[in-house]
């Protein structure tokens, strides 16, 4: 079995487990509805700034809820398979891709829920989806890394937040600023130019993790 077949099989397995634990998806949906309902109920006349802030903060919590436990779930029934039989690097790549896809789906769902309860027209839908993907893929990588290194620590959930929040914070900040421009565009706004730093950070993270992950398990 080639490495990419292994990665694909592991991603499939993770989606299958996710699908079997339907209550988790229900809980995430409940969270989305709950949060957006709170904003709908209490915010009144909402501005583009508040909408964007509410969206990105909700997405941050969503990322921690769904991405924080990805490695912990393997410590149970699949422990022997996940940590002995397959290459740890392939395990990490598959988990990262799974988290990115899952978070991307959740971010679009959150957008739809927000659109239903807090309707706000985003001028450039395609750019918005591209922005979401770039931000989510970087956040997903960072959360996967934090989850991987805190697997063997005590107080995992808090540790994941402590490890990933300071690094995720500027990415969310940039997402928030660019997102606001997509809602109420400025004359000088150039989407392609504005996402360069985000792309830079993303490739930086990828390159770094490719270098670091083998160092952790190679002993």
């Amino acid at each position: 079995m080639n490495w990419h077949h292994q990665v694909a099989a592991l991603i499939r397995r993770d989606f299958l487990f996710e699908w079997r634990n339907l209550y988790q998806i229900g809980a995430i949906l409940g969270f989305m509805l709950g949060v957006s309902y709170i904003f709908y109920f209490y915010s009144g006349e909402i501005s583009a700034r508040s909408w964007s802030l509410a969206y990105w903060v909700s997405l941050l919590f969503l990322s921690f809820f769904s991405g924080g436990k990805i490695f912990e779930s393997d410590l149970g029934e699949c422990r022997y398979y996940s940590f002995q039989l397959i290459n740890p690097f392939i395990h990490f790549i598959s988990k990262s891709i799974f988290v990115i896809i899952e978070l991307y789906i959740y971010s679009i769902m959150l957008w739809l829920v927000f659109w239903f309860l807090l309707p706000f027209k985003i001028q450039f839908g395609f750019q918005w989806l591209a922005l979401l993907f770039i931000c989510i893929s970087t956040i997903g990588l960072i959360i996967s890394f934090a989850s991987y290194i805190s697997m063997s620590a005590t107080g995992k959930q808090i540790l994941i937040s402590i490890l990933s929040l300071p690094i995720v914070f500027p990415i969310l900040g940039m997402g928030f600023v660019i997102g606001m421009q997509l809602i109420e565009p400025n004359i000088n706004f150039n989407f392609i130019k504005s996402i360069y730093p985000l792309l830079g950070i993303q490739f930086f993270c990828m390159a770094l993790l490719i270098f670091i992950i083998p160092l952790i398990w190679k002993s």
């Binding site: 063997s152 005590t154 107080g155 490890l163 993790l209 270098f211 670091i212 160092l215 952790i216 002993s219």
Partner: peptide, 18 residues
Amino acid sequence: SIQDIDKKRRISSAYNIF
């Protein structure tokens, strides 16, 4: 937060680079 000394050293070194 990591009890195992060897793991603690390895993981914190990797995190330090990151």
